[in-house]
Design a binder for these strands. Sequence first.
DNA 1: CAGGCGTTGCTGGA
DNA 2: TCCAGCAACGCCTG
Length: 560
Amino acid sequence: MPPACLNFSLMRFSLSQANPTMASGSNSLMWFRKGIRLHDNPALEYAARGSDFVYPVFVIDPHYMDPDPNAFSPGSKLAGLNRIRFLLESLVDLDFNLKKIGSRLLVLKGEPSEVLSRCLNEWRISKLCFEFDTEPYYQALDKKVKNHASAAGVEIYSPVSHTIFNPLDIIQKNGGKPPLSYQSFIKLAGKPSWASSHISDEITWLPPVGSVGNCMISEVPSMKELGYEDKEEDERTPFKGGESEALKRLRESISNNEWVANFEKPKGDPSSFLKPATTVLSPYLKFGCLSSRYFYQCIQDVQRDVKKHTSPPVSLLGQLLWREFFYTVAFGTPNFDQMKDNKICKQIPWKYDDELLVAWRDAKTGFPWIDAIMVQLQKWGWMHHLARHCVACFLTRGDLLVHWEMGRDVFERLLIDSDWSINNANWMWLSCSSFFYQYNRIYSPISFGKKYDPKGNYIRHFLPMLKDMPDEYIYEPWTAPRNVQVKAKCIIGKDYPKPVVDHKSASKECKQLFHEAYELNKRLNGKVNEEGLKDLRRKFEEVEREQEPKSKKLKQKLIG
DNA sequence: CAGGCGTTGCTGGA
DNA sequence: TCCAGCAACGCCTG
């Protein structure tokens, strides 16, 4: 069981007391996974306390980092290039910052639990320290590692520091079940125990790294050394990984008191890409380059200085609490990343349609607003939150009825900030599978973007083939007369695809399907089996066939 | 068991 | 910029 939320007073004194002359003959291993930072890092501070030598380790898991030529985009089996590069940049920065305080990062390669077992043995480690992690992958891995370590008599310290609250505390407070709404989460969570005190400053000293013996250690590898072709000329994410970059970004964001105080998430402009409407601190929180607790305190300091400010859920602080909420539900819900056997997930007869999925994934839906967002995802690994809503809604409950798990996989791979708990939660939210159920509220792939960017600058940037399309057709280029298409050097159906569905009829069908699927879920109290879903899908396909001639005619008319 | 409420819908009108 | 009307869900609270 993870220890309860941190005692910050302990952390404040920890380093000054870690005096090398008082050495007790112990070696510590600090295992970095997330939490790639020196500030507010209780596991690292504990490792430093009273140790002769501290071995800061990062293990490169080939499963996560080796190139996979069969993946749909360049990268490994699980991550696209942007996120792999972001991670390497974060590690280089960590190594740099460790070197400034007399240490360094030791990079090893292999299955993490095997690598660590060897290290514990070779370096005669007495304390193994690593941040507690709620993800199923780490839960399983950490169990293995803890078993190895305990058998070898190694002390384990695994504090909760990736989140502000300990998800386990919240779940216990709620009678063993995670809260299912933001408001009930807020009530349960209250204020962090350390809200009125200040968390510790950055570490200024670490015990040296001991002899590495026979363990194969290296510097942080480059993309090339990992086997990736990393062409400079490719458009890549403008966001650079690392703690230094995170703190710089944080300071820039919070230096504008008024902006912090008036932040209202739903009012941001998703089409603003040169100057994003949000902080873009999410990738740094994901990898723990930025401490969520430090961020929380910084926002609080700003709010104390201003007359009035926005409140959760829309405020900046509210965004951090969304993260906490989703981490808590994800930790307390078995099979959180799937529809089947997931108690909080509505059972919907989704399609497993590869053609539709690929059209969406590869920015070929024929809806410029949707496709531009998907190009930004591929190139930058980041889009505004509302842009994510639009494409997720379009793929699932709004238009295509493709399974949310298929969209989730694409986001998980390509986003630099993809986070297991938050990504799955948001896909369930947007697909009306959990948390949010108003399936009649559908984002229009045409008019939603128009509200913010009537001239279509965002579309023109990410879809250059449409750059000369007149404003009045930029969101619906298939309605442009032939001569306009010729003049814009963009023939619809040749230079840019025709729309993959007619939004009006597709969204109407989606609402009908959801009406029936919800009814079935209600009647069976959520226990819908595969047979039930099949029936529903069959029934619905009949409706689709009946409506097809009509919608085909309409489509033809639209396309001309 | 009913009523209030929910981070971010759309259209059309003032 | 704000509003009503649209159609209407489940969760939480009393």
